[in-house]
């Protein structure tokens, strides 16, 4: 019986994601974004089946294993869009650096104002970049990788829930600008959201996520001074 829990968990995850995508395609609302929908559904089903996270853990390790090659695969959208990225390199890099500086400064300022503990600050420092890179940085510089992953995910999920309508309202309509923001601030989940808007937006977001990951990796010694 216990041998079946892992295949059951994997199947459940695939099914929830598949259904989530279908629903979002028909009814795009903040609460039907695939990751939010799947997460809530799977947690409820696990609880109803009398399973806890330890039971789900092996399935998590198997699926998460592919985040490594998935990160490597980001080189492809980066390569395919290298011309347009080089052409708009200055606006793109300016947007990424300013965006990351603003999001980190605000996060650190508010967190310190609430006197949140050090391990939360360490998690916040990597919240905007994709999980495998965030976890990699946490392993290199210390901190709790579960907390880092949690903040990354929360940022990504919140980003896909809030950002599309917010950017519409603020008249940010240029797909290149939206793509850069999705990838820079909301990493992989933002990229998935961007890809739903158009293939081009998704490719730009993928490239932005990759570059944001590299930027944070390179500048982390500087960023960690502010912790």
């Amino acid at each position: 019986m216990t041998a079946l829990i892992t295949p059951y968990s994997i199947l459940l995850t695939i099914l929830a994601y598949y259904i989530g995508r279908k629903i979002y395609a028909k009814h795009p609302t903040p609460f039907t974004t695939p990751v939010f929908f799947s997460t809530v559904t799977i947690i409820l089903i696990l609880l109803a089946s009398g399973l806890d996270f330890d039971d789900y853990s092996p399935a998590k390790n198997i699926i998460s294993y592919f985040l490594g090659p998935a990160t490597v695969a980001l080189a492809v959208p980066l390569y395919k869009n290298r011309k347009i990225i080089v052409k708009y390199a200055i606006p793109a890099i300016s947007g990424m650096i300013l965006g990351l500086m603003v999001t980190l400064t605000i996060a650190f300022t508010i967190a310190q104002a609430f006197s949140l503990p050090q391990f939360i600050l360490q998690g916040l420092a990597v919240k905007s970049i994709t999980v495998p890179i965030a976890v990699g940085i946490t392993e290199l510089y210390g901190g709790d990788s579960n907390i880092s992953a949690a903040f990354v995910i929360l940022t990504g999920v919140l980003g896909t829930m809030i950002a599309p309508k917010m950017m519409d309202k603020l008249n940010i309509t240029m797909p290149f600008a939206r793509g850069i923001a999705y990838g820079t601030i909301a990493h992989g989940l933002g990229t998935a959201q961007a890809a739903q808007e158009s293939e081009f937006t998704g490719a730009v977001a993928g490239a932005a996520m990759a570059i944001a990951g590299i930027l944070i990796s390179c500048f982390f010694p500087v960023i960690s001074h502010f912790l």
Binding site: Y88, I90, P91, A92, S94, G95, M96, L98, G99, L100, V102, T103, L104, I106, A107, I110, A111, F114, L116, I120, L124, K127, S128, F151, L154, T155, L158, G159, I162, A163, M166, M167, L170, I172, M174, F176, A177, R178, I180, A181, T184, I185, A186
Partner: peptide, 27 residues
């Protein structure tokens, strides 16, 4: 509550500044 506020505010302003900068400079 402080965590939600921290994550939410930093996310919103990060998005606006990033997207707005790219859009303005590209035009």
């Amino acid at each position: 509550l402080p965590l939600a506020f921290t994550l939410g505010a930093s996310l919103i302003f990060g998005f606006i500044v990033s997207a707005w900068t790219v859009q303005k400079l590209s035009h």
